[in-house]
């Protein structure tokens, strides 16, 4: 199918780079990069790291960005006309649409929140958006040592698998996981107070039942500060509430991992992990909050910390 003029605009870049591997140089491959929203900085970082790593190979990349001006259906036209060897989708929407229109093309994804909910084909590969439980707990123990009783609030409907994994990892790391998994809006405050009295640190995970609204989040953080218990969590969005430690995936590393994986897919090399855990971490330490609640951090870990928050 011929491209119309607006579709043609969507093809932003085509790069031809010499690749050392003779087999591929003779038969150049094409990757279609589908971006959920090119204005999102995290997506841009992934794409930038991906293209600078993949450019070392003889690969042509074509880009398609889904935004207000473009109809997602146009992706179908691009896939048919470009006939890529691999679709690299960045973000949940891109992954969803690639699955929908990608036919039998291999798909590689990154930055898709809860990728498990979108289904999984035999030739779907990816870089998970969240660090593994083991990484989070290990790094937490590194930066805030000695806090061995970890409290977690979750709804089994959303997080039973993650918590089962956390129990196993905590045990291997010599930590004790203390769980709160049965609560309602009325009982939450009392139950959180009970939990805080039994733990050294609260681990706040992505759980829609727990993080249901701003008031609940504020309540948990306020109670935690009252009880002088630090909170470790996964997103910088919680820094202003008083999170003590934020451990998240490093976005550029995800792009580089995806590039290596794309190369393996195109070369039909063996891939051990179809969905890889992010290899790089990004750590923010709220020294101001830790000082307030009189909790000590490991100063020897400071060279691993990206961001230090001081009191203003």
């Amino acid at each position: 199918m011929a491209l119309n003029s607006s579709s043609a605009i969507l093809i932003c870049m085509a790069l031809f780079i010499a690749r050392p591997m003779a087999a591929i140089a003779e038969n150049p491959t094409k990757i279609l990069i589908v971006n959920s929203d090119a204005s999102v900085s995290k997506y841009r970082e992934v794409k930038s790291a991906f293209t600078s790593q993949i450019n070392k190979q003889s690969v042509r990349t074509v880009e398609f960005s889904i935004d207000a001006n473009h109809q997602p259906e146009q992706l179908q036209n691009i896939i048919k006309s470009e006939n890529p060897d691999l679709i690299f989708s960045i973000g949940s929407q891109a992954y969803q649409l690639s699955n929908q229109y990608g036919e039998t093309k291999p798909i590689l994804f990154s930055s898709a929140i809860n990728w498990q909910r979108f289904g999984h084909r035999y030739n779907t590969f990816g870089i998970a958006n969240e660090l593994s439980v083991s990484q989070e707990l290990s790094l937490s123990r590194y930066v805030l040592p000695g806090l061995n009783r970890i409290g977690v609030i979750y709804d089994p409907k959303f997080n039973s698998e993650r918590i089962a994994e956390a129990r196993k990892q905590a045990s291997e790391l010599g930590l004790t996981l203390i769980e709160l998994n049965s609560f309602d809006a009325d009982s939450l405050e009392k139950k959180v107070e009970e939990l805080l009295s039994k733990i050294d640190i609260l681990w706040l995970i992505a759980d829609p039942s727990v993080l249901s609204d701003k008031e609940t989040v504020e309540k948990i953080f306020n109670l935690s500060t009252e009880h002088k218990k630090p909170i470790i969590t996964y997103s910088n969005a919680f820094m202003s509430y008083g999170a003590s430690l934020i451990i998240a995936a490093d976005t550029p590393t995800m792009g580089r991992q995806a590039a290596n994986m794309a190369q393996n897919i195109l070369l039909h090399e063996r891939i051990n992990e179809l969905v890889q855990t992010p290899a790089g971490s990004h750590i923010a330490l709220n020294v101001c909050q830790l000082n307030k609640i009189n909790i000590h951090y490991n100063a020897d870990a400071l060279d691993a910390v990206n961001q230090i928050i001081e009191c203003k």
């Binding site: 590194y142 580089r256 991992q257 992990e273 855990t277 290899a279 060279d303």
Partner: peptide
Amino acid sequence: LSVPKDIDALMAVGYGVA
């Protein structure tokens, strides 16, 4: 695979990424 810090590199082997 360039990662931010040594600890990430070591753990990447543990998780089968490298």
